[in-house]
Design a protein around this nucleic acid. Structure first.
Lengths: 140, 140
DNA sequence: TGCAGATGGTTGGTAATACGAACTAAAAAG
DNA sequence: CTTTTTAGTTCGTATTACCAACCATCTGCA
């Protein structure tokens, strides 16, 4: 028994969204791999581009358990992409923030994402691109 | 040095695409987890909904190494979601195909994806939804 | 026909990801 | 000043995924 009836239109939209998600993810994944990063690590760098966060907050952003973060951050720190420092006020807390190397890598990766997606986005005219962007923005 | 200059428009579109990809992925991931599946396993089920494939072909669809497939398919088979049979003609080959249970689960999951995305897609009017779908389809 | 090379899969080893449960230390609440 | 909550880490486990090495079979070609 289906959860709920759905129209052909809805089906088409869901398909399109899922498919485009996989395309984007494939690009991100490959790009991350080129830099010897996992997708998650790339996400961490992206998140910390303009923020400093504690482990728990970071985990929340990513939708992961905090216990997962320890190793993740540890490895990134060992590679000099992130840094950890005890929280100024809260004696338990740790603040994670991006290093210069990490920021540079994040910036480079960002450009590469745009470049890698250009063949895809390029199939639309500039007007269409703006319309697509607007629709997606409205949806999120 | 940036790979290539990019406009503010392009940046906005890339951001929107990436963000929507993560939203969709989060939905898929959670949904898969609800069924005790990984995202990859869910993908396998989706792919095999209307096909039988060999291990190598399946790996190609997923963009993974064939050695990765062995364990993946093995576990899914053990759970009765997939089946394996020697290829009729090619003595080396294995054909992987979905079982009745697997198909049922895939169908259920599909409905749930649509349902889970409804709060998101629902932010657009039906007309906008159609336009979005059209634009995404043109792009892919 | 017969053998060299290509192809399909598995195996084994390794690293990373992610979870949950249990634990320490510090902070907040009472 | 206890009790409880919160922040992070540690430990054990399963899964994902890769690579290299490895059979078995199949294909091309001499």
């Amino acid at each position: 028994m289906p959860e709920e009836a759905h129209s052909a239109d809805e089906e088409a939209l869901v398909d399109a969204l899922v498919q485009s998600a996989f395309v984007v993810m494939a690009v991100l994944n490959k790009l991350a791999a080129d830099h010897d990063l996992s997708l998650t690590q790339l996400r961490v760098l992206a998140i910390l581009r303009d923020r400093r966060l504690g482990m728990t907050a970071l985990a929340a952003y990513l939708g992961l358990e905090k216990s997962t973060m320890t190793g993740l951050v540890e490895r990134a720190e060992k590679r000099g992409l992130l840094q950890r420092a005890p929280h100024a006020v809260d004696g338990r807390g740790v603040e994670v923030f991006i290093s210069a190397d990490g920021a540079a890598l994040a910036a480079r990766a960002y450009d590469q994402v745009a470049a890698a997606l250009r063949p895809v986005t390029g199939k639309l005219t500039p007007t269409e691109q703006r319309r697509l962007q607007t629709l997606l923005a409205r949806m999120l």
